[in-house]
Amino acid sequence: MKGSYDIVVRTKRLQIKFTVNRNITILCGDSATGKSTLVGLIGEYVQNGRQSGVEVICEKPCSVLEGVEWKILLQNRKQNIIFIDEGNAFVYSKDFAKAVKGSDNYYVIVTRESLHELPYSVNEIYELKNTTRSKYPPVKRLYSRFYHLYGLNKEIRKPKKVIVEDSNAGYTFFKYWFEKQGIPCISARGRSRIFRMINDMEEEPILVIADGAAFGDQIKDLYELQSSKEVYLLLPESFEWLILSSGLVQEKDIPAILANPSDYIDGKNYFSWEQFFTKLLTDSAK
């Protein structure tokens, strides 16, 4: 499944509007913002259709996945946008990651916990916010939207140390670039080691460069670490995406692909967008 999909979930009392762009979307944030309500409304619509009093507007079928029989339930779903509420512990399992990999569905998962088995993007982590203009009654309907939870660094000071998630081409490039300016650059050899490395470092500021396309499980912890360390995050989709975006590779389709990757990247073939950009770069460089 590929493409971006606008979804509107509506009753007489509330409306939630959002867009999903790739195979895995995470919904988290404060309590009482309507996350479980959203999943509940979609579940009621699936069970009772328009007779539920819920309206779900989307080009693709929306459904809910829950309970111990999730594997059986998932078998027959294709080209669905599947919503999973918190409390479903299977989303942390290797089995679930295996089922998502190669699946022809999109998944919207409500959770505050990091899903280490799934490669999800820092750009697809959202919170729900009420956008109703008037806060005072009589308000007929409350309106909510998805908002990005993690923004960009507004200002970056010159780092004293750089940590690169990658240990291959990306690391070679950044090491050359930063060490030319006298800034030590080290490889973390994997995203899960970055937190410990920052924690153990005495020099600040620290710049972390990682593949944003699959860094979603680390981002919350690094944001919180900014309360005690001066850490800046540079999270392009991937190193290959950076090269493609630089214009170094002249291929006529590349600007269109980079402008709307969702239209080209099928989640069934690419677990994470970084895999697609690696193939695109390799093929273009041939």
Binding site: C28, G29, D30, S31, A32, T33, E86, R112, E113
Partner: peptide
């Protein structure tokens, strides 16, 4: 909300340990 339900459980059943990741920062 899931968060408030967990808070209420913590308050009335402190002998149990609840998953507080069902609670937002608020």
């Amino acid at each position: 909300s899931g968060g408030v339900k967990t808070l209420i459980l913590m308050y009335f059943e402190p002998e149990n340990i609840f998953n507080a990741s069902t609670c937002g920062d608020n």
